[in-house]
Amino acid sequence: KTVHVDGVEYRFNNPEEADKFVKRLVKEKNGNVEVRGDTYHVE
């Protein structure tokens, strides 16, 4: 899984860790998540 945040790319081998990371980011930023294939885009 890959997570894109503000143009920075984070790669996770463990999908659960990627999910936790995304949830935390969305809370912090009050942002939205767009999923494209295996990539999460957080804005």
Score class of each variant (00 low, 15 high):
D38S: 02
Y10V: 05
K27F: 09
V22E: 10
E34H: 10
V3L: 03
N14G: 03
P15N: 06
G31F: 14
T39A: 10
E16D: 10
F12R: 00
V22N: 04
Y40E: 09
Y10E: 05
E43C: 15
E17Y: 00
R36P: 12
K23M: 06
N13I: 08
K20E: 15
A18R: 05
V8E: 04
T2D: 00
V26I: 13
N14R: 00
R11E: 12
E43P: 07
F12M: 00
F21L: 06
R11K: 11
K27H: 09
E16V: 03
K20F: 06
N32D: 06
E34L: 12
K27N: 08
K27I: 08
G31Y: 14
E9S: 03
V5D: 01
T39D: 11
G37S: 06
K23I: 04
V8M: 05
K1F: 15
L25A: 03
K1A: 13
E34S: 12
V42W: 07
G37Y: 12
E28C: 14
Y40H: 09
D6T: 01
T39K: 08
G7D: 03
V35P: 07
P15Y: 10
E34G: 04
E34A: 09
V22T: 07
V33H: 02
V5Q: 00
V3M: 01
K23C: 15
T2V: 11
H4C: 15
R11D: 06
V8Q: 03
V3I: 11
V3Y: 02
N13V: 07
V8L: 05
Y40P: 09
H41P: 09
E16G: 05
D38M: 02
P15R: 07
E16Y: 04
T39P: 07
G37L: 08
Y40M: 09
R36G: 09
K29C: 15
V33A: 06
G31K: 06
V42G: 10
T39F: 09
V42H: 06
R24M: 13
Y10A: 02
V5T: 02
V5M: 02
V26P: 03
R36M: 11
T2K: 05
E16I: 04
E16A: 07
F12E: 05
E17G: 00
V42I: 11
